[in-house]
Design a protein around this nucleic acid. Sequence first.
DNA 1: ATATGTGAAGGGTTTCACAGCC
DNA 2: GGCTGTGAAACCCTTCACATAT
Lengths: 265, 265
Amino acid sequence: MATGRTHRPATRSRGIPEATVARLPLYLRALTALSERSVPTVSSEELAAAAGVNSAKLRKDFSYLGSYGTRGVGYDVEYLVYQISRELGLTQDWPVVIVGIGNLGAALAGYGGFASRGFRVAALIDADPAMTGKPVAGIPVQHSDELEKIIEEDGVSIGVIATPAGVAQQVCDRLVAAGVTSILNFAPTVLSVPDGVDVRKVDLSIELQILAFHEQRKAGEEANAEADAADEAETAAAVAPPAPRGTTGGGRKGPDGDVPAVMPA
Amino acid sequence: MATGRTHRPATRSRGIPEATVARLPLYLRALTALSERSVPTVSSEELAAAAGVNSAKLRKDFSYLGSYGTRGVGYDVEYLVYQISRELGLTQDWPVVIVGIGNLGAALAGYGGFASRGFRVAALIDADPAMTGKPVAGIPVQHSDELEKIIEEDGVSIGVIATPAGVAQQVCDRLVAAGVTSILNFAPTVLSVPDGVDVRKVDLSIELQILAFHEQRKAGEEANAEADAADEAETAAAVAPPAPRGTTGGGRKGPDGDVPAVMPA
DNA sequence: ATATGTGAAGGGTTTCACAGCC
DNA sequence: GGCTGTGAAACCCTTCACATAT
């Protein structure tokens, strides 16, 4: 079929799957650690273990970015770090505003992983006048009256909402009106935004409830399997792991052996 | 398949999809708000809007729990609140320990959504002796030497890790050894745990990176691929062959034709 | 010999559209 | 008429297995 003179540089395609995008930061973190230890190359197997995924998935993910590995050898760590950074848009600087400087907002402001990767806290904003001017994590808090001005002057496109749920939608509306197009929401509420604005949410309560669900199921399994075993047999086999962990076999977590891979995605 | 033995409407359907489980807390929150406003019934359309999903998905989700609605009418709010609570295991009390009482740990300790639904902060634990005894959100911090004792005595099965990344795995190991089987991890690191232990992670940095990816793409759409090409060319030339690998022909397994250059002995 | 890159198969999730019941 | 409950289609993601390259 020959190389059909594709005019386009045929860069990574127009559509990296969302699931892949969500894992790129994981790979990047693992690669950065390797880079700091001056490891030159890494195989898909090793990197996958470090990132907590399986190697087939990792290779498939990388295949969406392009052919950045060398068969029989592995991946060049530095090169991959750069490529993934670029793909994620981390080679540029993203100014971020945090709105709501309570306990959580303060914690976020002081979070190291923030500044380390392309993100810069452009401003901390709170509605409480008593907070204004007070330095949090070395940055003086500004009053929310200034919100629009800050966003426009600094060209902020990413906002973090750490306010109480009751005011989150108002804050969101103001952020969007001022030009923010990506929002990370820590308030336990559903935000509605116009088309073209991305919202991601982080909700402690939801995560705990999901854990509780599984926890409850574990407890139920022990006491279960009595009367209606026959009825459930087929279903249970599909859901429960094939090896019932009676004594759990010690539960080893090998540093570089088998990977547990427990994340339910 | 009409097994004919399935009578109990309550504890049926052992096999709720993970995606559905992850949405149940959203529905529950919306329903709780309706309940507080004494709304008696709600349609799938209304509830879906309040929870930020579409109605077909909601109905499908609910169908895994059972037939809890009334055709032509909708769902009984109170009844659904109870059913979902029960399904999630929130009708019982879950003691939770938080390890690592820095900025984030303190924020989590004070989080209202914690106590509101079935979860109770059993203990705050920190390795710093200077923190010991100090009350945070009304609860005195205990030293990490006490970790095992606390977990065993209180029957804690859910742990929250809010420590620095460097000690997260050690903390995790101790939690698991003491009997914890569900972990919510805020430390930016991959935890390995034995089979049977659930881990969920919350990572600010990852969420921001995902937003940055989409943000970059939006910016790229406006100024139609131009500066991007230059950036690309430079990198590609420096390290790898720029050869576009457009689907290199169908992988035909030629039994007779082409033989690999290197011949096997 | 070793490890990547990728079609193809397999599972899970979402959406559609309508039968069934109020 | 209105709304739920659900097979079936469409879609997305993961896993398998092996051709391909070094």
